[in-house]
């Protein structure tokens, strides 16, 4: 089956799967050298990985300026078709929701051109239910698999595969991540599907579960993100928030100061660059944070 590469949480995997293609969500590795100064390390990593992919297509979204612009950089570097999907920053108007739905329809046509097939409502429903159950299982597994330690929320921008080590560092420091609120973690999973609406309007339910419900720093206004973190902080008994963002990522950086001011728990603001030697420094800071909370 042909694979379609993407990384953004606003791209519904079940939509790609229902079109008969294999959704391949990528967590890129560190990119190394070769990008101009000022480029976000995640965007650089995505460009690097996408430019060498074997996938039959790449989906990029407009969730941030640099990812939007990365689409044309990737197009210039490889032959793989690139689809740039418009994800509106505004979300409270019917027009914004319609734009997102229209973009899904446009994506569907793009996938058809790649050899995919327009799904019947029944196929779409079946695929959505399958993915919904996988996500429910993931949530349940996360709930039961937590080791004991100081409960913390990890929030911030998306992680590269090489950044996942931060979970180990937090555990080494005596903490436990009770919520992955990074862009790509549990926070950015779509809402569970409304079964009643699923039967009558699967495409509408799919769009709403993603577009209307995923909190993200790029949304304007951004109150979903703050409400979500406030709510989950209490619900999960978290004692603090480790906020991890990339250098040059303005979208997530911009939230850091306000979260420090508004969340009812301490926030550790970690800036991730591309320097391997950061590791010891990061561990020391997390250890100090955990000790302070204990």
């Amino acid at each position: 089956m042909k694979s379609v590469l993407y990384t953004c949480p606003f791209v519904p995997a079940e939509w790609i799967a229902a079109c008969g293609l294999d959704p391949m969500r990528m967590t890129p590795e560190r990119a190394g050298e070769g990008m101009p100064a000022g480029v976000c390390p995640f965007a650089a990593a995505f460009i690097h990985a996408a430019s060498t992919t074997n996938a039959c297509a790449i989906i990029v979204t407009t969730v941030c300026d640099q990812m939007s612009r990365s689409a044309e950089i990737i197009e210039a570097r490889c032959e793989t078709p690139v689809f740039l999907m418009n994800v509106p920053a505004t979300w409270r108007t019917e027009e914004a929701a319609k734009l997102y739905r229209d973009e899904l329809a446009r994506l569907g046509r793009f996938l058809e051109d790649l050899g995919g097939a327009k799904p019947t409502p029944e196929q779409l429903i079946e695929t959505m239910l399958h993915y919904d159950s996988l996500r429910a299982k993931r949530r349940a597994d996360d709930e039961t698999a937590r080791p004991k330690g100081l409960p913390l929320i990890l929030a911030g921008g998306p992680l590269r595969s090489t950044d996942i080590e931060i979970f180990d560092l937090i555990e080494q420091a005596g903490g436990t991540v009770v919520l992955d609120a990074t862009a790509g973690g549990e926070m950015t999973l779509p809402a569970p599907f409304d079964r009643a609406r699923l039967a009558s309007d699967p495409a509408g339910e799919l769009a709403d579960a993603y577009f209307a419900r995923i909190p993200h720093a790029m949304r304007r206004p951004d109150n979903q993100l703050h409400e979500y973190l406030n709510r989950e902080l209490t619900a999960r008994g978290a004692r603090g928030v480790i906020y991890r963002r990339y250098q040059w990522c303005d979208t997530w950086h911009g939230e850091a100061g306000r979260l420090k001011d508004s969340l009812p728990a301490p926030v550790l603001d970690l800036v991730a660059g591309d320097d391997e030697s950061d590791r010891a420094h990061v561990l020391t800071r997390i250890q100090a944070f955990v000790e302070m909370l204990k």
Binding site: S68, P88, A89, T90, R220, D250, T251, H253, G254, G257
Partner: peptide, 19 residues
């Protein structure tokens, strides 16, 4: 404030102003 396909810097700063 115009948002969407605009600078992330500006969008983030404007959001802080709203807050």
């Amino acid at each position: 404030c115009s948002v969407g396909a605009t600078c992330d810097d500006f969008s983030a700063i404007a959001q802080r102003i709203e807050a």
